[in-house]
């Protein structure tokens, strides 16, 4: 649904993004992840047709971003980093205006506004001036604006920035509800957001692609084995030997006060491990997945400079 090939953008001598190639499948929610000034906003601006690329190709919904710009713009809903609002308009008249410039037919304009208000939960403020509504509602109005013409692709640049935790949760739920019907790409540098909302990520740093794929794929590519860390009431050689007898287990080792158990991807020995602990009356204090969490993954990819 979104595809780029060797996409490069230079501002004079400054290279904003370099040879970026990635792919987002239809109906998925994809995160564009990277530190500040990594080129996230530039990438999104090229995809939405706001900026032309210096070289390379990009296509959205099957249309070429450069050659079929109008068709691309018609199939994208875009929330830029600064929410594009006219403070002197009411929420309703603003959404009406956006519907008009997004070429929603006049007969369906009212329905489109009602639908966007409904989805974004703006019923209580729809008649109010945008200048008088809260930050959270402004952000929602921005999202409503991006959805007004029911676009196939939705691009959101840092949709939860500057919101309080309750608002962040609401916006995330809203984004999750778009899954399936829309293809969503959102940029962020909040890792928890990716874990909660996204199916996959594109990680960029200093304009270069560091990794891309679903979260699971990425986790697999960075460690050979799946497994768990186990914290028991006791951790000694005797216990380790017990675990080593489990069929399929590749490794059992002591890691500080924790026991690390590894097995190949595709198997899952968690049930067996639990059963063993119960049989032997070993008290489990904690058990967590060995698979790298997104924070570790991100730090390794971005700081380690591991290119794929």
């Amino acid at each position: 649904m979104i595809e780029t090939e060797q996409l490069t953008k230079k501002y004079g001598d400054l290279v904003a993004i370099q040879n970026l190639s990635f792919k987002v499948e239809e109906g998925r929610i994809w995160g564009l992840l990277g530190p500040n000034a990594a080129g996230k906003t530039t990438t999104m601006r090229i995809l939405t047709g706001y900026l032309p690329a210096t070289s390379g190709r990009a296509s959205v919904a099957g249309f070429d971003v450069f050659e079929q710009a109008e068709a691309v713009k018609q199939s994208i809903g875009y929330l830029p980093e600064t929410v594009p609002l006219y403070p002197e308009m009411t929420v309703e008249s603003y959404l009406g205006f956006v519907a008009e410039i997004k070429k929603v037919p006049a007969a369906r304009k009212k329905a489109a506004v009602d639908r966007a208000v409904q989805i974004a939960g703006l019923q209580s403020v729809r008649k109010r001036l945008i200048r008088n509504i809260s930050r959270g509602y402004k952000q929602r109005t921005g999202i409503a604006q991006a959805l007004i013409h029911n676009p196939r692709v939705v691009i959101l640049d840092e949709p939860t920035i500057g919101l309080d935790p309750a608002q962040i949760k609401e916006i995330r739920d809203l984004i999750k509800s778009l899954k399936g019907e829309h293809t969503v790409m959102l940029s962020t540098h909040i890792l928890a957001e990716v874990k909660e909302v996204c199916d996959g990520v594109v990680i960029i740093n200093e304009g270069k692609l560091m990794a891309s794929g679903s979260l699971e794929e990425l986790a697999r590519s960075f460690s050979q084995n799946d497994g768990v860390y186990l914290k028991l009431d006791r951790a000694d050689g005797e216990v380790l030997n017990l675990f080593r007898q489990l069929p399929g287990l590749k490794e059992a080792a002591l890691d500080g006060s924790e026991i690390r158990l590894e097995w190949p991807w595709g198997q899952d020995l968690r049930t067996q491990v639990l059963k063993l602990c119960l049989d032997r009356k070993l008290e489990i204090k904690e058990m967590r997945s060995l698979a790298m969490n997104i924070e570790e993954l991100y730090l390794r990819i971005v700081s380690g400079g591991m290119e794929q």
Binding site: T82, P84, I101
Partner: peptide
């Protein structure tokens, strides 16, 4: 200044 330029130029209006 308001950033609304981005809305105008990314809509299918010439």
């Amino acid at each position: 200044k308001m950033g609304t330029e981005e809305l105008l130029f990314t809509s299918p209006v010439s």
